[in-house]
Design a protein around this nucleic acid. Sequence first.
DNA 1: AATGCGTGCAACCGCAGTATT
DNA 2: CAATACTGCGGTTGCACGCAT
Length: 283
Amino acid sequence: MGRSPCCEKAHTNKGAWTKEEDQRLINYIRAHGEGCWRSLPKAAGLLRCGKSCRLRWINYLRPDLKRGNFTEEEDELIIKLHSLLGNKWSLIAGRLTGRTDNEIKNYWNTHIKRKLLSRGIDPQTHRPIGAGVTTTTTTTPTTPYSDGVINSSSPAPALTPEIVVMNSNQIKAEEAQSSSGTTEEHQQEQQHQQQPQYPELNLDLSISLPFQPEQPSTNTAESKQQLLSYQVFTAAAAPPPPPIFSQAICLCCRLGFQSGQACNCQTTMIPNGAHRYFSPLDS
DNA sequence: AATGCGTGCAACCGCAGTATT
DNA sequence: CAATACTGCGGTTGCACGCAT
């Protein structure tokens, strides 16, 4: 048997929130904190479903929200993040403090799309419009880096989550520094130079079979640890986190970045071209 | 002043993944 | 293990507003 029934959809208000409803929600969350959205409406005396309360709080009432226009820096950051992550608005929002996924999504659809089109750039692919897709490689329409292992024949860019929050000058400096790296890095550098719009991005991606761990774990605790690791790499990170070892698949690795280039987790290649991720604890 | 149109944004909807019973 | 609820996410819709005609 499952749980008890969800919030009754009857007897719930819809549409715009009133000031009184807002105040009730704020007061309740101040007193009891976020979470438990299902029981919140009843406890707070609101005729709304929990989902609606959550949305209202996250998108509008949260005290740490930054209201107002997006800056030029935020614009460029969103564009770069979108080229990297696709329509993963929540991940993008995690990189812009005080902005919500909904806000960014709206801003993208109303402003940035147009901005890119006026620059002659396809907002979905981040390629110049008219540059035909002639390769046999495939990318998903909304996510340049699909959720799988990127084929080793087309190495992913040496971008780290930290680089993502840097400005373009910092990125250039980072690239200049990396040019004195290994042969492999040098090859990537050459590929970067072939990208006309965003040199740090390689959008020519192939898709291979999804990564299969050698010892797939169904352990719940380990799953939680993986989630935690994922959250560490995706959380809003104003200052770059100190070097840490990932004990699971970090976001960088999930995006196909190779160890050392993008993150500090320990990743190695296995013969089929996929990556094997292992924890320092394994050794 | 009235109307039409475009824009911006809050809110809803449906789905997928996860948690719980 | 299956069934069900919960949570979060992305896509879409609808309304309010401003501007042009």
